[in-house]
Design a protein around this nucleic acid. Structure first.
Lengths: 228, 228
DNA sequence: GCAAAAGTGTTGGATATACACCCATGA
DNA sequence: TCATGGGTGTATATCCAACACTTTTGC
């Protein structure tokens, strides 16, 4: 609802920002992309990847632009997590920030972007002290991402179009940081009819070879059951 | 992350608002509190209860202030739902809006506030066309609230401190808009050790009387299992 | 004694978990 | 032939849904 804004003579305006929590999957573990601030305020501290929302830019667009600018990645499944709006969350200015989260494959991240922005990956078990309330943001995003990755097929972006079940399982074990029983895992996968087995094997990981699967978008429309 | 804002000479600023989605329980059904806009823009249309966030006000505080201003209710369990930030969500200004949702007992809502603000309750099955993207906000909030009410004890605010199981069941049936099996319902309740039966009956609804229960906060800390 | 609401158990199906061996292949 | 990773089935416990009758009491 919009109040009459004729009396809107506030000189001090709240600024609107976005912070991106980018998880990178690497070496069977999750890492978090951070940048080191080159300038004041908070020079030298680590920070999430963020920026202000443009006046002519959707909030979602802003998140995608920032992700894209810093990683070169596009069409990544990205999701709004929560908006942080405490007055004192940032000591020198009034900024509310909406957090967005994405998971990417670290190996797809172009190295030149990293150096350009002074960015660095950290294992999520070793996140340093971050500016403002960014540590809170990360904690919430991790919990939420782990919950969602069990109930929605959001991790398939991290695999090639054709993937094997061992690949899929390793991915999930890495994301969730827990071991999964192979047979139970495969039984669940078998119930998802939109994961279709091809008549083709990946021979690169074993002598026997593992069947390749693909995620069928159309079949998924019909029956969206997913839980791992 | 905060970019250097030395070049921050934007004259056009994004405004930050909050919209409250207030569900009222009445006559065993959920209703939604809306207000009719007395002024342009969108004069005469129905709208959620909302307003701008003060410069010196936490986002959460703003939501509570607005709820409190319009309902007199305080200490209501309120939860951030999502932030809406499309450029064109409001045709005449650039406003992002965080939605917050609460459930209250309609009977506790003071009538004078309603008339003062031109507010009115609508059954959630008969929500009229609202301004901007407010219908989307409502749809998302209803889904989320129903999901959460099953997994967290957020509905106990709607009951007196001492309540009977028939009361609790009627409440849940109303919120979820589905009938629940009495025996299954009571078995689940029995597992929640923090719902403690008192040696006291409510005789107002039946000749036999129904045992009163209370929600024990301390016991809930230990064992938070909840699902109905 | 009867109307009206409160209260109570059991069964069958589905789902989740735990667990160990054979298979196919290239070297 | 053997080392390596891929693949398979069963038994148990747990959870969930469906279902109908007895109890208490004021009138």
């Amino acid at each position: 609802m919009i109040k009459s804004n004729s009396t809107n003579s506030n000189i001090q305006q709240i600024k609107v920002a976005v912070d991106c929590i980018i998880f990178g999957f690497n070496d069977n573990k999750l890492e978090l992309l951070l940048i080191k601030k080159k300038e004041n305020p908070e020079k030298g501290k680590w920070s999430l990847i963020g920026g202000f929302v443009g006046f002519d830019e959707d909030l979602d667009e802003a998140a995608n632009r920032i992700l894209s600018d810093l990683s070169g990645l596009q069409d990544i499944y990205m999701e709004q997590i929560k908006t942080f709006g405490k007055v004192d969350r940032c000591s020198f200015d009034r900024i509310i920030s909406s957090t967005y989260s994405a998971m990417i494959l670290k190996s797809r991240y172009t190295e030149d972007k990293i150096s350009k922005y002074n960015a660095q990956w950290f294992p999520i078990t070793e996140v340093p002290d971050l500016i403002f309330d960014h540590n809170d943001m990360v904690d919430i995003a991790i919990k939420r991402m782990r919950r969602r990755v069990r109930n929605f097929p959001i991790a398939f972006n991290l695999l090639p179009p054709k993937f094997t079940l061992p690949q899929l399982q390793v991915l999930y074990e890495g994301i969730l940081d827990e071991e999964l029983d192979k047979r139970n895992f495969r039984r669940k996968v078998a119930q998802m009819k939109y994961l279709v087995r091809l008549d083709e094997k990946d021979m690169s990981e074993s002598r026997r070879g593992a069947f390749l699967y693909r995620f069928d978008e159309t079949l998924f429309e019909n029956e969206q059951n997913f839980n791992l």
